[in-house]
Design a protein around this nucleic acid. Structure first.
Lengths: 115, 115
DNA sequence: TTTATATTTCGTCGATTGACGAAATGAAAT
DNA sequence: ATTTCATTTCGTCAATCGACGAAATATAAA
C-alpha cells in the first residue's frame, strides 16, 4: 500500500501503454488482439496491461479463455477519471494512434489468435 | 520538435518534480531556494527544472544573479493547463508536500544561498 | 484426462533515469 | 578586470524500465 504519487504518471509514460488506452477507447480488447496490433511479445503486452490495471485506468473481465480489457468506466480516483477524460481529445491527430484505431475496428480475435 | 507523446507524463513521473510544482503553486522560487528545501545537489535541481520548463509547466525569469521559476500562467498546450489545474487539488494531503509548502513561506534567499 | 490456446510470471539484458561532483557559464559586486 | 555567487552543462554510476523467451497457470476442447 505505497503512496507513490508518481505511479499514475509513470503508467502513462510509455507510448505503448498510451496506444493501448487509445485503442480501448474504441472497444474492449483481449491480450492477443492488442499484441497483434502493437507487434510486441505477449508477455510484454500483459505486463503493460497489469500496470494500467494497477492504476485503475482499465479493468479486466474474463470470458472463457480470453481476458477482455476495457477502460475503467467508474474510476474511484478523480485523477484517473480526469486523465481518461483528457485522453478523449488528446493525440487524436497522431498517425500511429489513428492507424491503431483502424486496426481495432477490423480485428477478429478468432483469426488473429492461435497461430 | 519531436512529437513524443509521453514526455509530458515523464516530466510528472518524478516525486521531486511534483514537489517542485507544488512549491511553485505557493510562490515563485529561485534554484537555490528549491535546492535547500529538496536537499539535493544544485545540478540535480537545475536538471529537474529544465525538464519541467521543456514541457511548459513552468517559466523562468532572470532577476540579477538569480533565476526565478514559476508556474506557467498561460500554457499553450491544453494538456499542460489541465494537469496544472488538477495539481491544485491533488496530493494536498501529503505530509511531504505540506512540509515543503511551509518551508517555502518561511524561506529567505539571502540567508539560504551563498554558504 | 490429455491437448490446445490464452495469459501471466520469471529471469535476463540493453537503454533510460536520477543522483552526484567537477567544470563551464553568466551576471553582480569589488 | 577580478572576484564572487547562482546556475547550467558534462561525465559517471547505480537503479529502474521495457523488451524478450521460457516456464508456469488457467480454461476450453477433444
Amino acid at each position: 500500500m505505497s503512496k507513490d504519487r508518481t505511479k499514475i504518471f509513470k503508467a502513462l509514460s510509455d507510448l505503448n501503454r498510451l496506444r493501448i488506452l487509445k485503442m480501448l477507447q474504441t472497444k474492449p480488447l483481449c491480450v492477443c488482439e492488442i499484441t497483434e496490433i502493437l507487434q510486441l511479445a505477449t508477455s510484454t503486452v500483459s505486463k503493460h496491461l497489469s500496470i494500467l490495471k494497477e492504476e485503475s485506468f482499465i479493468i479486466e473481465q474474463k470470458e472463457g479463455k480470453w481476458v477482455n480489457y476495457s477502460i475503467n468506466p467508474r474510476p474511484s480516483d478523480q485523477r484517473v477519471s480526469s486523465v481518461l477524460n483528457m485522453l478523449d481529445f488528446w493525440i487524436d491527430d497522431d498517425k500511429l494512434i489513428i492507424g491503431d484505431k483502424q486496426k481495432v475496428t477490423g480485428v477478429d480475435r478468432n483469426e488473429i489468435c492461435s497461430r
